[in-house]
Nucleic acid binder design. Structure first.
Length: 273
DNA sequence: CCAGTATCCTGCAGGC
DNA sequence: TGCCTGCAGGATACTG
């Protein structure tokens, strides 16, 4: 269940593990995901390729090789990547397996199939339908100056805009709630009825909470030796997400929760206005 | 263009 | 035990 920090953690682990490793075999079964997964199309593109670098854009991973083009991966709600010995037992809903030259396999598992595995031709970062319309990267150093004026001309609940990938690309339901708590802004507040100063504090909170989570993922990364090779999950310190009914850590009020823009949203009625 | 809802899919927790 | 409902960390097509 990956948000940006989890995806970034996976990127860092894989960037440490796979460069120079060659793909000997591609297996799996073509299946409907967010886009149709076409193993027979991917196999000739990937077989024999060696990993070079790993990039992240929003919650997308891009694998680069010693040949033109990139592998584009999105984990959706339930996607996982495993880097395991080729003899390791196969998880349910393993859709694609890359057998590597070092005896391991890179496996893509996604029960709900909201994720995406596709090939990007050279230059595809700019033309791919999903990537091309992504908004600003939330960890971009310019976020605090760029985001407030963008939000300020919109009427939607501020929470919905944080989740809109065309505005800012990579914030998910957890960190949207956490950033709003830190900034003291009610998730249902209309963005255009929020001062630019407060929107600036919100942008700063977005960066703070994401950076802290990435750092925590980096900490987990040190003892990355779990036998099943699962990646991207680490204990999280959350103030409001999933804590409805519990006491706010700042003021002691009961955390509330309602559906906003189709997503369950938790907030402190005292601290957030 | 904008805002809000419906939808893809499986797994799991909780109520009865 | 099983059956049912609702909900899940995402993204986007569609409607008004």
């Amino acid at each position: 269940m990956p948000e940006l920090p989890e995806v970034e953690t996976i990127r860092r682990v894989l960037e440490h593990e796979v460069p120079g490793v060659r793909i000997d075999r591609v297996s799996g079964r073509s299946i409907n995901m967010r886009r149709p997964l076409a193993i027979e199309k991917l196999a000739p593109l990937l077989t024999g390729a060696s990993f070079l670098t790993l990039r992240r854009r929003a919650k997308y991973l891009l694998f680069d090789f010693d040949r033109p083009g990139s592998l584009l991966v999105h984990l959706g709600m339930s996607g996982r990547i495993q880097l395991v010995d080729e003899m390791a037992p196969l998880a349910d809903h393993t859709h694609m397996i890359l057998t590597l030259s070092d005896g391991r396999q890179l496996r893509f598992v996604d029960p709900r199939r909201f994720g995406l595995i596709d090939w990007l031709a050279p230059g595809g970062e700019d033309t791919d339908a999903s990537l091309a319309r992504l908004g600003i990267e939330p960890l971009d150093p310019g976020l605090v100056s760029i985001l407030p004026p963008l939000l300020h001309e919109r009427r939607s609940p501020i929470k919905s805009l944080l989740l809109d990938q065309r505005v800012v690309a990579g914030i998910g339901n957890i960190y949207a709630a956490e950033a709003l708590w830190r900034a003291g802004i009610h998730p249902r507040r209309a963005a255009n009825r929020t001062s630019l100063a407060r929107l600036g504090r919100l942008a700063q909170s977005v960066q703070d909470v994401l950076k802290e989570a990435v750092d925590r993922g980096g900490t987990t990364l040190r003892d990355f030796s779990k036998p099943d090779g699962e990646m991207g999950f680490f204990a999280q310190q959350l103030a409001v997400y999933g804590r409805q009914g519990e006491e706010c850590g700042r003021c002691g009020s009961a955390i509330r929760s309602e559906v906003i823009g189709g997503r369950t949203t938790a907030w402190c009625p005292e601290c957030q206005r």
